[in-house]
Design a protein around this nucleic acid. Sequence first.
DNA 1: AATAATTTTTAGATCAATCTAAATTTTTTT
DNA 2: AAAAAAATTTAGATTGATCTAAAAATTATT
Lengths: 221, 221
Amino acid sequence: MMQNSFTEENYLKIIHALSGREGLEVSTNALAESTSTRAASVTDMLRKLAEKGLIHYKKYQGVRLTEAGEKVAINVIRKHRLWEVFLVEKLGFGWDEVHDIAEELEHIPSDHLVERLDAFLGHPRFDPHGDPIPDAKGNLTEPDYLVLTDVQIGEKVRMMGVLDHAPSFLQHLDRAGITLGSVIEITEINEYDKSASVQINENHTLFISLEVSKNLLVQRR
Amino acid sequence: MMQNSFTEENYLKIIHALSGREGLEVSTNALAESTSTRAASVTDMLRKLAEKGLIHYKKYQGVRLTEAGEKVAINVIRKHRLWEVFLVEKLGFGWDEVHDIAEELEHIPSDHLVERLDAFLGHPRFDPHGDPIPDAKGNLTEPDYLVLTDVQIGEKVRMMGVLDHAPSFLQHLDRAGITLGSVIEITEINEYDKSASVQINENHTLFISLEVSKNLLVQRR
DNA sequence: AATAATTTTTAGATCAATCTAAATTTTTTT
DNA sequence: AAAAAAATTTAGATTGATCTAAAAATTATT
Ligand SMILES: [Mn+2]
Ligand SMILES: [Mn+2]
Ligand SMILES: [Mn+2]
Ligand SMILES: [Mn+2]
C-alpha cells in the first residue's frame, strides 16, 4: 500500500481541524482558503482522497474523514505536537517559533521514531500551546476549556491554551506576561468595546482587548 | 530565490560523495545508479542544476559541483549527520537504524533549527558511523584514516569508521563486538583469501573476512 | 581508421499537484 | 417559482520528476 504524500496529510489534518469535534462537513471553499489553493485544486484532491478511502465525499456535498482518514490525521497531529514539545523543551525555541518547523517534521514517516521521541520527551500530554497530544493508539481527548470572554468579573481562572496560534499573538502574550498556567482574574470589563482589565498571577494588572480575550482558553479552578 | 527540492538536494549530496575529495567529474550513469533512476532522468536533472548554477555541466562531459552546489551539499551532509547523532545519542537508536530516517530529516529547511540542534548535541565532531560533521561555516575535513587491509600483522589500531554504511554490515560488526573506538590487533592473515584473525580490545579474538577488512577505517596509535 | 560497444542525450509520455476559465449545481433573494 | 448570486466541478494547461525508446556522441576494439 502506497504512502500518503505531504500534501495529502496536510489536507487530512486541515479537514480534521475544520470539521471540529462534531465531525461536520467541510466545504471546498473552506479547504481552498486553509490550504491557500484554488477551489478547483481542492476538488481534484478530494477525488483522490475519496479514491483512497480517506474521506467521505459526494459532489457538492462537502467532506468528512473516514475512520481511516481520521487515523492518519490524528497521527500527523500527534507528530506535529510532539515535535513542537521537542523544539521548545529540548532546543529552547519560543512557542511562537515552532509551528512552521513542526509543519515539516510532522511528515517524517517512522512509527519507531515517533514512539522513541515520545518516550524521550516523557510522554507529554500537551504541546507548548496547550493543545492535547493524541496517544500512540490515536486517542485524542479535547479538554473542554472556556474562552476568556465567558468568564465573569472577579473569577480567577488558569490560562490553558490559545485559539490563535499566530506568532504575532503569541509574542503579544509574551509581552503581556501571559503564559500557559498563568492565573488570570478579570477585574473590569468595559461595556463599550468589551476590553478588560485583568490581573496576572496576582501581581500585575493590564488591559487586554476583546480580540485577545476571544483567543485565550482558560479553566476554572 | 527559490528553495532546492528534496530531489535536488539528494543529487547534490550524491555528486559530492561520488566526486570524492579530488572533486572528480561524475558520470550520468553513476548518478543513475546511485539515485535509482534512469540515465535520461539524470540528464534532465543535471540541466536543471546547471541552470541554477549548482553544478558545472557540459554535455557528455560529466559534472562537478560549483562553489554554490558544494555549499548546499555540505549543509545537507551536516544536517544528515547531526540528526544521526540525535537519533543515536538522544533517542537510543542503533547505528544501523538511523540512516533512512536521517535521509528525510536532512531536508528540513531551517538554519536556526540546525544550529540549535548542534548546540543541544554538544557540537559533535563525528556522527555515529565515524564520519566527520561539517561545521556551521561549511568546513568539512576528512580525517585520513587507513583501511584495515593496509595494516600489518602485530600492529594495534583503533577503529574509527566504516566505508560500508549498510545496516547488514553494521549489525555484523555489532555481533563481532567491533564498535567505534575498539582497539584492533591483527594476529594473523591467511594468504589464500586474505581473511584475518584479529584481537578486539585485547580481550577477544575472531576471524574477519577480507570484505569486512576492506570496509573498516582505522587509525594508528 | 573503421567498426562495434557503451554512454549520454533527445523525443515524447505519464503522474501528481497545481492553475485559469468556463460550465454546472446549489443556495439565496426577489 | 424565477432570477441572481455563490459555490463547486469540469475542461484544458502547466510544472517537476520520472519513464521508455530512439538518436547521437564518445570510447574501445579490431
Ligand atoms: Mn505539514
Ligand atoms: Mn501547537
Ligand atoms: Mn535525502
Ligand atoms: Mn552516518
